[in-house]
Design a protein around this nucleic acid. Structure first.
Length: 561
DNA sequence: CTGGGGAAGGGGCCC
DNA sequence: TGGGCCCCTTCCCCA
């Protein structure tokens, strides 16, 4: 006995759930877009996904291999077994799909694409390749088409699908190989930098994706992985025309990301670890999408420049305030949970609208800091403009329009080009930090080796701590959350914040099973079970398990009533 | 309804 | 980089 429609119905349900975000337990980041999906579905579709999602709830995909629109098609295919056949799906699109499918090890989809390409008689080998000097023109860099991106990408990226494949992919390999040939040795060298991304799998297939984000958010997470070991990677049905309702689910699944975090942050996309390209915090990933890299750099740079000017006023203002007040300046979180970036205020003061991308003039980079966004987690706030320009925050309905728009930033970038090389950006930041540190060090007065902040005159034992502290005076927060866009001054804080997004609570109470994001919280919680109340009010003798509750209790004593 | 306490979430930041 | 602690805040319960 067998229900003929069972698989189809099941898939239909899952796709609808995906559209609503129901039970979605993984987020896939592709360039500017976030996609929600179900781990089991992805794992059942691709060994590659299976290995990635085993350790992470947030997956960054290589933008050289797949762009948002292509990935949307891929995801639709995974959930429906159906490939869109609209006008948009031309040969070029099939090439991009093939690239993505090969990269993601979606062999069925890759086979379909190959078949389609074969049928149209278009030989992949005839695809134009870029000049082999490893340098690409600006136009090439700004193009978002996957083929062009492959051509401009580093060797390690282009090699990936080939190396991952444990099956023979004649056409794929020829295709990919052809692009790899156009790469300069210098680009491949970059692949060995410290940032471990899912692109570095060529070095060790066993650790694919484990640290793809440059962070290990699940550091102490329990071993309770839900990955299914027996799932066949080719279990996706290939048949069944779908109803119209399914296709609505498809498009709706494209992540509601109107206030695109990466556009907000102006940082390097695709790398949670090095979000803002913070100089001292290490190299940006070698595989950063060139399309967004150039504008975002300039945006970051613009902010830095603005900061340099605005900082003085702000810092002097802050220095004149008591510590507590100065602290609050950094924390503009409203009671409704909304968060207004420090730079917002500045933008407002300058008479600029809070609407992002409202002006494209001289201050394109500046604009990226003018935003207000809501912290609504993943609640649908879907707009049509899912492709967001990182420097100015403007949204566009398609990558083509975005590309066209990005071109308008050309003059600005040329104008801004004060540094000869992009790498000098990093040096600049380091120098800046060093400068501040040395200034501060000079401020050290005879006292035993303390390093004083030049802004607020707090002192620290070592320069590194001082530098860390000095970041609190910056207007630019270098570490963005890739999910909500909130900015942080310290990577650790951002990582911790990400845990809350992803529901990662590594610290479990053995007594009641309650889980916490921090060890400290668990320690605190354990007092509930032990009955320990170490914090005692000196005024009334009241005892508390939490120090913070003692503090609020003390307020009751001190506040006039 | 209100105030106080218990418990917990999240961000800042020093070490 | 992560741990630890401080602070602010919220939610819930109860008197």
């Amino acid at each position: 006995m067998e229900l003929p429609n069972h698989a189809k119905q099941l898939l239909l349900q899952l796709n609808q759930q995906r559209a609503k975000g129901y039970l979605c337990d993984v987020i896939i980041v592709v360039e500017n877009a976030l996609f929600r999906a179900h781990k089991n579905i992805l794992a059942a579709s691709s060994i590659y996904f299976k290995s990635l999602i085993l350790h992470d709830n947030l997956i960054n995909l290589d933008t050289d291999m797949v762009n948002p629109s292509v990935f949307r098609q891929v995801l639709d295919f995974i959930y429906t077994g159906k490939l869109l056949t609209s006008d948009q799906v031309n040969d070029h699109n099939f090439s991009a799909l093939l690239t993505a499918a090969s990269y993601l090890q979606l062999h069925d989809l890759a086979a379909l694409c190959r078949k389609k390409l074969k049928r149209t008689g278009r030989s992949l080998l005839n695809k134009p390749t870029t000049p082999t000097n490893g340098r690409t023109s600006r136009n090439q860099r700004l193009s978002s088409t996957p083929v062009t991106q492959m051509q401009m990408s580093g060797l390690k990226d282009s090699e990936k699908p080939k190396r991952q494949h444990d099956e023979e992919l004649s056409e794929d390999e020829m295709f990919i190989g052809a692009t790899a040939n156009s790469l300069s040795p210098s680009t491949s060298k970059n692949g060995s930098n410290g940032t471990m991304t899912n692109n570095n799998i060529s070095s060790n297939n066993n650790i694919v994706g484990i640290q793809e984000l440059g962070l290990d958010l699940s550091k102490k997470s329990p071993s309770g992985s839900t990955a299914t070991e027996e799932v066949s990677p080719s279990s996706i049905p290939q048949e069944s025309p779908q109803s119209a309702s399914e296709s609505t689910a498809n498009s709706a699944s494209f992540e509601e990301n109107t206030t695109n975090p990466q556009s907000l942050v102006g940082g390097e996309p695709m790398d949670l670890g090095d979000g803002g390209g913070e100089g001292e915090e290490g190299q940006p990933p070698a595989d950063v999408d060139q399309h967004s890299k150039v504008p975002s750099r300039s945006a970051a740079r613009s902010r830095q420049r603005v900061r340099g000017e605005a900082n003085k006023a702000d810092d002097s203002e802050r220095a004149a305030l008591p510590n507590g007040v100065a602290k609050r300046l950094n924390n503009n979180i409203g009671p409704d949970g909304s968060y207004q970036c420090k730079e917002d205020e500045e933008g407002m003061e300058n008479g600029q609208s809070e609407e992002s991308g409202n002006s494209e003039g001289e201050s394109g980079g500046r604009n990226s800091t003018n935003y207000v966004y809501r912290q609504e987690g993943f609640e649908p706030a879907l707009g049509d403009n899912l492709y967001v320009c990182i420097p100015c925050g403007k949204g566009f309905p398609s990558s083509e329009e975005l590309n066209a728009h990005v071109e308008t930033h050309t003059e600005e970038e040329l104008y801004i080009k004060e540094e000869e090389e992009e790498d000098s950006y990093q040096k600049e930041e380091e120098a800046e930090a060093e400068d501040l540190s040395s200034q501060a060090a000079l401020a050290v007065s005879g006292e035993a080796r303390r390093f004083s902040c030049s802004v607020c005159s707090r002192s620290y034992k070592d320069p590194a701590t001082l530098r860390q502290h000095e970041k609190t005076h910056w207007l630019t927060r270098p570490f963005p959350c890739n999910i909500c866009g909130k900015m942080f001054t310290q990577r650790g804080t951002m990582t911790r914040h990400m845990r809350s997004h992803l529901g990662l609570k590594p610290f479990a109470c053995e007594e009641c099973g309650m889980r916490f994001t921090r060890q400290y919280r668990l320690t605190e919680h354990m007092r509930v079970h032990s009955g320990e109340k170490p914090y005692e009010c000196q005024l009334c003798g009241g005892k508390f398990t939490q120090q913070r509750n003692l503090i609020s209790h003390l307020r009751m004593h001190t506040s006039p009533s």
